[in-house]
Design a protein around this nucleic acid. Structure first.
Lengths: 223, 223
DNA sequence: TAGAAATTGTAACATTTGTTACAATTTCAA
DNA sequence: TTGAAATTGTAACAAATGTTACAATTTCTA
């Protein structure tokens, strides 16, 4: 089989392709294929193995009781599905997982995976890094949800993206996906953006956002 | 030294005291003592070691943008400090850590800890379980924050607690801590409880809650 | 037990967000 | 290029929550 996608996978960082090949041929594993739109896993279903996205993309989504879908995150190749749920006391998928494109997954049983971790320290460190990063991501997410107002969430998102570049940035999300991401209604996002533009804080043009008043934008995160 | 507190520590679950003693005498470690009220770690400071609370209690606190201090959680003996931040790409304390009482910490350097993990599979699994549990806790928290209405959050909390017992339960939290937990204003909690009582769904008396209409209570989680 | 402190109940009004609906604009594909 | 589909802008009104203030009640403590 082709181990090339694994070279890019976080779990195998720092390993050469021959090392990977040697390790992987000795580990029992399966390949599973999914068509775009098909269900990969249901929330609540047991997680009994490590799954690595070899090609394609899956998406983790939550459904609240009113049927609204809240997208939690996309996992493109070569990421892993729910690595933080293989161990721990619950061992169940926290979200529904959908293939958003034609997708190939490599599946390694938990027991086999454990012996792989014990066998190779690089892989062990990589895995510890992965699930630790996961916690760190969730902590960020919570910080995010705790911003009460939509303008606060927008300010947080915009300042986070802008700090890397300059005062101009591109939000490559539609208002709809923004609304899903925040867990709010779409027209409310439009209104918030419109108002911040009126207030002279932002300049929004065709998905490109320009920060006009950084100070007042940051203030929206405080109250 | 006295290894007794470690017997109770999640990291050493399933090990006998003689196994622990044997392992620990071969691992470089330090004991650090803190007086009540003293700073154990600053938010943003690098996490370079595993720290286990042998005695006493530490508390994680966050400072928001307006300077207000928000207590995140207490870690009593025999818990660990920020185990999910030893590895991962950030490696920095997410919160300020304060000793709330006279406290003793056992400190094991990251490198030494890693060799301990590689040496003993039980400890490895325990640690994987610990940081995975952390992720799972955070996921729960997120699910919770996603309930939009206060009545929905209340319904979720009450039904979660009640399912174990009967239709009667005790919320051992004041309205104030409930409000903090939900991230809402205190009078809003009082109003929501009052309204649900008026609607004949709950009976609230001195902290003891009785569910009168389970069906309509559950409906509040849906919309 | 008496007074202080904390908790709870309640009200009026302001603010934010949701809901629904529709028009304007942009993007995409035949 | 043109029509369909998706995205965005906007408005009116409803619902939920916040804010502030104060009284009533309960719990703690000297």
């Amino acid at each position: 089989m082709d181990f090339f996608p694994l070279l890019q996978a976080p779990l195998f960082r720092g390993l050469t392709s021959s090392e990977i090949e040697k390790l992987m041929t000795s580990v029992p594993k399966k390949i599973r294929k999914f068509k775009a739109g098909s269900q990969v896993a249901l929330a609540g279903e047991p997680v009994t193995s490590l799954m690595i996205v070899l090609s394609g993309t899956v998406s983790g989504e939550m459904v609240d009781y009113s049927g609204r879908v809240i997208k939690i995150e996309d996992i493109p190749s070569p990421g892993s599905l729910a690595p933080a749920f293989i161990f721990g006391s619950s061992n169940r998928f926290p979200v529904n997982v959908i293939a958003v494109a034609e997708t190939e997954l490599m599946v390694i049983d938990k027991r086999d995976f454990l012996s792989l971790l014990a066998k190779n320290e690089k892989i062990l460190v990589n895995f510890l890094n992965m699930i630790s990063d996961r916690s760190q991501f969730l902590s960020e997410k919570i910080k995010f949800l705790n911003f009460k107002t939509i303008k606060g969430k927008l300010a947080q998102l915009i300042l986070q993206k802008a700090s890397k570049d300059k005062d101009s940035l591109i939000l490559d999300m539609t208002q709809n996906s923004l609304a899903d991401f925040f867990g709010v209604a779409r027209p409310s996002v439009a209104r918030a953006l419109g108002e911040m533009e009126e207030e002279g804080i932002l300049d929004v043009k065709a998905g490109r956002i320009k920060i006009l008043d950084r100070k007042r934008l940051a203030e929206y995160m405080s109250h």
